[in-house]
């Protein structure tokens, strides 16, 4: 018996397997491990016996590890590693032709690739963050409870945006690298509203608001948005990128370039 569901499930499953058992996963495990080792050493700076010491450690941990290393570095790099290669890998390697000549609606191919890549971005980032928080001790557990949600939506938004790039531009990985390392770093730290073009800005704003009662404050020039606005923006980026990528794949012609 033939069914669209069988085909779509196979697409998701195979994409997931190919992404997970790829060199990207291995390479992403190195910075993750380095980050964890860093936290192992970092926590020695804080005594966390008393509640006020935990709060102090939590505030420092938020600034140094959560914002600077997890949100500004690990999250975009993980999204880059998986998000651009789910569909972008097929485009750059020339295997997309095998998918486009199957009786699967093109929008469902975009959806299938998204369903394989974005959860992987979320789970990897969450996994790394959970590990880091667990290693940090009480302050880390506090950070996990507080920041798991912003990080979830941040990973969803980043992953979906890179997935959109993969359907849209010819060299998604190159554009993804430029976006993740340059545009995010440059725009996200600029004064004024221009930083709203950076996905990381919304995640950081959300984190700053959640951490504010425990003394977490943003840098001087950083003017954060309200957490609710950040949440809705990240959800909108996720859904908008997904819808747009489905529409682009449905309508765009992909002509294989000879190497």
């Amino acid at each position: 018996m033939k069914s669209w569901w069988y085909a779509w499930r196979a697409l998701v499953w195979v994409t997931l397997g190919r992404l997970w058992w790829s060199v990207h996963t291995l390479l992403l495990l190195f910075p993750t491990a380095a980050l964890m080792l860093f936290v192992l050493r970092y926590r020695e700076r804080f005594a966390q016996a008393q509640p006020e010491q935990v709060i102090e450690a939590f505030a420092q941990f938020t600034q140094t590890v959560v914002v600077m290393l997890v949100v500004s570095f690990l999250l975009p790099v993980v999204a880059l590693g998986f998000g651009t290669t789910g569909l972008g890998g097929d485009r750059e390697e020339g295997t997309l032709v095998f998918l486009l000549t199957r009786p699967l609606p093109r929008w469902s191919i975009a959806l299938g690739k998204w369903a394989a890549t974005v959860p992987l971005v979320v789970l990897f980032t969450w996994g790394a963050f959970a590990g880091v928080c667990w290693l940090m001790g009480p302050a880390g557990r506090m950070a996990w409870r507080g920041y798991a949600l912003p990080l979830f939506w941040g990973a969803m938004a980043y992953g979906s945006f890179f997935h959109l790039l993969a359907t849209w531009v010819r060299y998604p990985t190159v554009v993804g690298v430029v976006y993740a390392l340059f545009v995010e770093a440059l725009l996200g730290n600029m004064p004024g509203v221009i930083k709203r073009f950076s996905i990381g800005y919304y995640v950081r704003s959300w984190i700053y608001e959640l951490g504010a009662p425990w003394g977490v404050s943003p840098p001087e020039m950083f003017v954060p948005l309200e957490a609710t606005s950040c949440a809705w923006t990240l959800i909108a980026i996720t859904l908008g990128s997904l819808a747009l990528s489905a529409w682009v794949l449905q309508t765009k012609e992909y002509i294989q370039q000879e190497r």
Binding site: V23, H24, L27, L28, F30, P31, A34, L35, L37, F38, R41, Y42, M68, L69, F73, V77, L80, G81, T84, T85, Y171, T173, V174, G176, V177, A180, L181
Partner: peptide, 24 residues
């Protein structure tokens, strides 16, 4: 590593994390 994304991941990890590590 040959491909853009693995190079970018390793390159940035090398510079960013080595900075964080050395300072720590």
């Amino acid at each position: 590593l040959r491909k853009t994304v693995p190079i970018a991941i390793t390159w940035t990890s090398l510079f960013l994390l080595s900075a964080a590590w050395s300072e720590q």
